[in-house]
Amino acid sequence: MKAVYTEQHRSHDPQFFLVRGFDPVGDTSEQAASVFRRDYERFGTVIRELKLKAE
């Protein structure tokens, strides 16, 4: 993620995150943490149920 963040700041291209499946918004860090927790819970359940593993 650090590499993605660094590259985005070098390019200053507003489409950088969008073409990679991200939806950048101007939230506070607390709001971002809430989104991460929600996504972790939602996708974590699916990943565990399907017994998916990172390669």
Rank of each mutant, 00 (worst) to 15 (best):
D23M: 06
K53T: 13
G44I: 07
R10N: 14
K53A: 13
Y40R: 09
F16D: 01
G44W: 09
E55K: 13
Q31K: 10
S34D: 13
K53Q: 13
V35Q: 06
P14Q: 02
L52H: 02
Q15F: 07
Q31S: 07
R38I: 04
T6R: 15
A33E: 10
Y40F: 11
K51S: 13
V25M: 08
H12S: 08
R20D: 02
D27G: 14
H12K: 15
R38L: 12
S29R: 13
F36T: 00
A3V: 04
V25W: 06
F16I: 02
V19H: 05
F43H: 11
F16S: 00
F17W: 13
E30N: 10
P14T: 02
D23W: 04
E7S: 11
H9P: 04
E49N: 15
Q15E: 14
I47N: 01
F36N: 00
E7W: 03
T6K: 15
R37N: 08
L52V: 12
A32V: 15
I47D: 01
A54R: 14
H9N: 15
H9M: 13
R10T: 05
A54Q: 12
R20P: 04
D23S: 08
Y40C: 05
D23E: 09
S11F: 04
L50K: 14
S29G: 12
P14V: 02
R20N: 06
D13M: 03
S29D: 14
T28Y: 00
R20T: 02
V4K: 11
Y40A: 12
R37V: 06
F16E: 00
A33D: 10
E49F: 01
I47H: 01
